[in-house]
């Protein structure tokens, strides 16, 4: 079980840059590890810190002191590059629960689905409208209403599409693993029908 995703209201981490690859999300040198923990601190590491390891104040993430944004507003083709599942681990580890972008890379999509991270692909027109709102007021509260498949911000509503199975998993707080575990009787039946166990 993970925290069910229902309606999330939060601040926006504003990074409307195209083609942010997994190397930028989490650099390759941090992959030789045996845990999933600690990647939140490393999210966007090479943008976030300078060479001495001090926070780079220019970078969006450092402009939300003590106020972790839960929604990432990104550009086109977010999450391209390698298949590392460390990328969604870094995002959720930091506290991001939703990423909004015009499109996402395939493998990143797959890996996010496994980690309770909601990816919202917005069409050009609503994407630009939402972008305007956030750009004008970086402190705006944005609400993602998953059951209704809507985003609310500054009095405007934008609707989005989502694969029904994924929506169910997120709302129930079961990930695919939880879902599969609920099927265990049918898995056992399948095995005995094949003459096993």
């Amino acid at each position: 079980m993970r925290e069910p995703y229902n309606t999330v209201t939060g601040k926006v981490l504003y990074l409307p840059i195209d083609n942010i690859d997994t190397d930028q999300i989490i650099p390759a040198r941090f992959l030789k590890t045996v845990t999933k923990e600690g990647f939140g601190e490393l999210l966007f590491h090479d943008h976030r810190y300078d060479e001495e390891g001090n926070p780079n104040q220019e970078f969006a993430i450092n402009q939300y002191p003590g106020n972790v944004a839960e929604i990432l507003f990104a550009g086109d083709n977010f999450g391209c590059g390698s298949s590392r599942e460390h990328a969604p681990w870094a995002l959720t580890g930091y506290g991001i629960r939703t990423v909004i972008a015009p499109s996402f890379a395939n493998i990143f999509k797959n890996n996010s689905a496994k980690n309770g991270l909601l990816l919202i692909e917005l069409d050009e027109q609503p994407y630009q409208a939402l972008k305007q709102i956030v750009e004008n007021n970086k402190d705006v509260d944005v609400t993602v209403d998953l059951p209704r498949q809507q985003i609310h911000a500054d009095g405007s509503d934008f609707s989005f599409e989502i694969y029904p199975f994924l929506k169910t998993c997120l709302i129930k707080g079961v990930d695919e693993f939880g879902y599969l575990l609920n099927l265990s009787d049918r898995i056992k039946a399948f095995e005995s029908a094949r003459g096993e166990r």
Partner: peptide, 18 residues
């Protein structure tokens, strides 16, 4: 076929994958 680390755990725990 190749899978991600989460999927590795799904197969370990249920012998199945979506």
């Amino acid at each position: 076929f190749g899978i991600g680390t989460s999927e590795v755990s799904h197969v370990m725990g249920t012998q199945c994958l979506f």
